[in-house]
Design a protein around this nucleic acid. Sequence first.
DNA 1: ATTGTCTGCCC
DNA 2: ATTCTGC
DNA 3: GCAGAATGGGCAGACAAT
Length: 610
Amino acid sequence: MDFRALAERMEAVEATPSRLEMAELLAQTLVRASAEETPPIAYMLLGGLAPEFEGLEVGLAENRVRELIRTRTGASQTQVDERMAEDGDLGLVAEHLWAESEGGQRALDAFGDTEPDPELAVRDVHGRLAEIGRIEGQGSQEKKKRHALRLLDQATPVEARYLVRFLVGQLRLGVADQTLLDGAAIAYAPDEAVDVGDDGMARPPTELRETMERAYNLTSDIGDVLGTAREHGIESLTGVEVTPGMPVRPMLAERGKDADEIFANVGSPALAEYKYDGLRIQAHVTSDGVELFSRRLEDVTDPYPDVVDQLEQALDGTAAVVEGEAVPVDPETGEIQPFQEIAKRRGRKHDLEAAIQEVPIHLYAFDCLWVDGEDLTREPLTERRQRLEAILGEHELVDVSSAEHVRDATELDRFFEDAMADGCEGLMVKKLGDDSHYQAGARGYRWIKYKADYHADLADSLDLVVVGAWHGKGRRAGWYGTLLGAAWDETEDRFKTVCKVGTGFTDEDLEQLDELLDPLTRGEPARQLDVDLEPDVYFEPEVVAEIHGADLTRSPVHTAARDDEGGIALRFPRFVRWRSAKGPRDATTVDEVRSMYYDQPTVDGPGAEG
DNA sequence: ATTGTCTGCCC
DNA sequence: ATTCTGC
DNA sequence: GCAGAATGGGCAGACAAT
C-alpha cells in the first residue's frame, strides 16, 4: 500500500464524526493491506511503530520537527509560530507550507529533468521511521533530522500532515485501539457474520470483536493480533491466555466521588483497598527470572533490582504474574514517602545503588493474574486475592495491600480515613462476586478509585492570579489552551507561579477567555511577576481563578515559596470557576501555599509533623 | 566538566 | 493524571 | 457511558552547547 493511500484514508477517517463510519473506513483499509504490512499499519494508525513494550520511538518531537519544517520550506520561526497559533496543529502547518512550496517545485519540473518523487510505500515509511528511532550516540540528533528530512522531502502535502503529526505524537484521527478493533472485526469477520444496519453501515460482530479484544488485552500487541486475524481468521485467536513475559493490559478504574455513588455501582459488600501513591507494577516471575512492566507496558525491570530480589524471595519458586503498587518508604521508619521519591527511581541507570539505599521500595501486591500455568483472569476477585495471599506470605518489603470488606458508607469512610492517615491517596473499591474477573484493559465500574480530591470540600483549592497563557492545539486551536496561575507573595508584593492549568474549562469558558484576558495582554512578564516559564502571552495580574488539585509538590520550575529545595507547585490542577469578586491581592498567598505543602502527611519539615 | 534543551513516560 | 464533548 | 482528545507536574537520560 502506498503511504499516500493510507494518508488519504486517514484524512477520511478524521473527517467523519461517526464511529461506525470510522470503523468501516478502517476496515476497508485493512482489507486492502497485505499480510506483511498489516502490523505496521495497525501500529501506525495508533501513532506507534511497534507494541508498547518494545519501547521503539522515533526520538524526534515537536521542537525538532519545527526545525525540519523550517529547513524544508524556508519558513522563519515566526512564520511557523504564527501559523501554529492559528492552526493549532503542526501537521496542518506543514501541509500548508508544503502546498505553498509545491508550486515552486512544479515550476522547476517544468524545466524538464526533475523526476517526480517516487511513491512512498507504507512499509518503507515504517521501516525508515524505525531506523531513525534506532540512531543514537554523538551526532545522533543531526543524523535523525537528516533522515527525517529525506522522508519529508518525498512527502506530498497530505502525507506531510500525517508524518508530522506522527512525529509529534498526535495523529488526531479520533481513532484509538477500540475503534481499530471495531474496524478489524468488520474486516476479518466472514461476510455473513457482519450485520449491516438500516443506515447501510456495518456493525462490528460482537463475539468476534470480543475475541480480538481479549487477545489484544492479554498480549498487548495489536499488530500481532490483527496480523493473526487476517492470516488465520479471528477464530484462531480464541482461547488466548496470559503468557508470562508478555504484559497484560492492566485493568483500570473509574472515579467515584462519594460512598453512595460507589455502592450504587459495585454493590455491597465490596472490597476496599488502600490506593498507594506509587508506580503500578506488573511482575512476571518465572524460573527464567523476573520481568517488571509499567502501567503502560514498558519494561521497567532494570531500575528495580531490589524489587526483583524481594519478589523472588517472596514467591519462593512459584511462577506467577502479580500486580502491585511500588511505593517509596523511609528506610528508618518504613513510613510511606511522597511520590516524588519513587519518581527518582523510574528509569534510573546511574547511581542506582545509592538510590536503592536512600529510598527503599515496598511492593503492595493487589492482584494475581496467573500462577504456575493457570490463567486466573476469569476467576472472581476473592479467589485471585486468596491465591495471591497464599503464594506471597509475609515479607519485609513485599506485602499484600491493606484491604477490608466494606458494607456501607460508615465502614468505607472509616477505612478511607485510615488510608489517608497512612499516607495513601485514598481507596480502590472493587466489586466482589461472580463477575469480578480481571477485566484486562477495560475501564468500567468494577473498580472505583476514591480520592479525597474528588470531593470539592476535600480537594486542595487555590485562588490563583492568571499571569500568562499558551495557545491551544487541536480542537482548542484559536483559543487559549493553558493558563499560568500565580500566588501572591505578601511580604514582597510579587506574584509567583504555582501551576499551569489546562483542564476543567468548558468550551464556553474557553470562548470567553479572549474577552476576559485580552485587555490585560502584554508582551513581557508583568513587573511584579517572578516566572521561569515562557508563555505565549503575558497578562497584567488581575483576574483570579479557583483551581483545584490533589497535592502540592516540590517544583523545579514554579517560583512560589522557592527555597534551596525549589518552589512549590500544584499536582493535577484543574480550573473550577472564576473568582470575579477577587482582586490579585485577594489570591492565595505564598505563605498559605507553603503551609499547605508542609501540612501534607507524607511531608516532613516546618509546621505540623506527621 | 557543567549546564541547558528536549524527549518519553510516570503519575 | 483530570476533564470535557460527541456519539 | 464509551472513546477520544484536550490539558497538568516532574523525573532521568541522551545529547548539544558552553
